[in-house]
């Protein structure tokens, strides 16, 4: 059923990583991604792999979750790997007609795959261990200085919160409307693409109408609860950096430093 889908893929927990400040996690993830792209040799990437693995171990999140999150982008990974293999010049492994795979290409492909896998695994770890609302909160607070430049930071964060809040409601509603139209004999499973697109009208229109009605009612309810934008607003949950946050940050900075050091010591593979 549609409503079984969970959005954000957050797995509540009590691990050290779960308890880190979401802002810090956001910063750490950014540093991690930078390190991945700075690394230009196997040594640097191995450092990244190691810290990624450590992250998963500490968080208690199963590595099989990484496999799951990689699944949808598998074709892209394979595609880039193959391209790398055949379009990089160098010592041939085998040649077939105009296709030539090279050792250099293979090396690059492996690096590329490691990098993508780490990228996905690292950012997934952020969403696995941080609730969507905490993330929204972190974004709002990290970008707070931008308010001075008239960036609607609070408004964007509020929109994100409301979207997160209403996704399950709208999924459930879609489910209901689909059932209701099927009960009136709507046929959504057969016919040409055009037929099927047309069959969506009886679902989309009621969904839009009801979303507007909900938006209207929600806006009124928010006003009745004294909502008047971000000005003068306080927050119940105060985010506070603790010792652990700085230790974690230090670790990530060291990873980045190590990666840069590797770049200096080992020859670049590009």
């Amino acid at each position: 059923m549609l409503k079984d889908i969970t959005i954000g893929q957050y797995f509540p927990g009590e691990s050290a990583i779960h308890r880190l400040d979401p802002r810090m996690k956001l910063i750490m993830t950014t540093i991690y991604i930078v390190a991945l792209f700075v690394a230009n040799n196997v040594g640097g990437l191995l450092v990244c792999v190691a810290i990624g693995l450590a992250g998963y171990l500490i968080s208690g999140i199963s590595l099989s979750m990484v496999k799951k999150s990689l699944k949808p982008i598998m074709p892209i990974i394979i595609f880039t790997a193959v391209l790398n293999m055949i379009f990089v010049d160098g010592k041939p492994i085998f040649e077939f007609w105009i296709i030539k795979a090279t050792y250099e290409g293979l090396q690059l492909a492996v690096l590329m795959v490691i990098r993508i896998v780490c990228l996905i695994a690292g950012s997934s770890l952020l969403t696995y261990t941080t609730s969507p609302i905490a993330l929204t909160d972190a974004v709002e607070r990290l970008f707070d200085p931008l308010k001075k430049f008239n960036m609607p930071v609070h408004e964007l964060a509020m929109m994100m919160t409301i979207a997160l809040r209403f996704i399950p409601t709208l999924i459930e509603e879609t489910d209901k409307i689909m059932s209701a139209q099927k009960a009136r004999g709507a046929d959504m499973e057969s016919g040409t693409i055009i037929d099927r697109a047309r069959a969506l009208i009886p679902i989309l229109i009621p969904l839009f109408v009801s979303s507007f009605r909900r938006a209207d009612e929600l806006a009124l309810a928010m006003e009745c609860r004294c909502y008047h934008g971000g000005e003068g607003r306080t927050r119940m949950k105060q985010l506070k950096y603790t010792g652990n946050d700085f230790v974690a940050l230090a670790v990530l900075v060291m990873v980045l430093a190590l990666v840069i050091a590797m770049n200096l010591i080992l020859p670049s593979m590009y």
């Binding site: 609730s131 609860r225 004294c226 607003r233 306080t234």
Partner: peptide
Amino acid sequence: DNQIVATIVEEDVAFGLENLGIPPEEI
């Protein structure tokens, strides 16, 4: 459904108080 703003119960209950600018401990 159409008057709950936040994705966590306690955050939603806090919504009005946050709008009023009440200090965090009191919220």
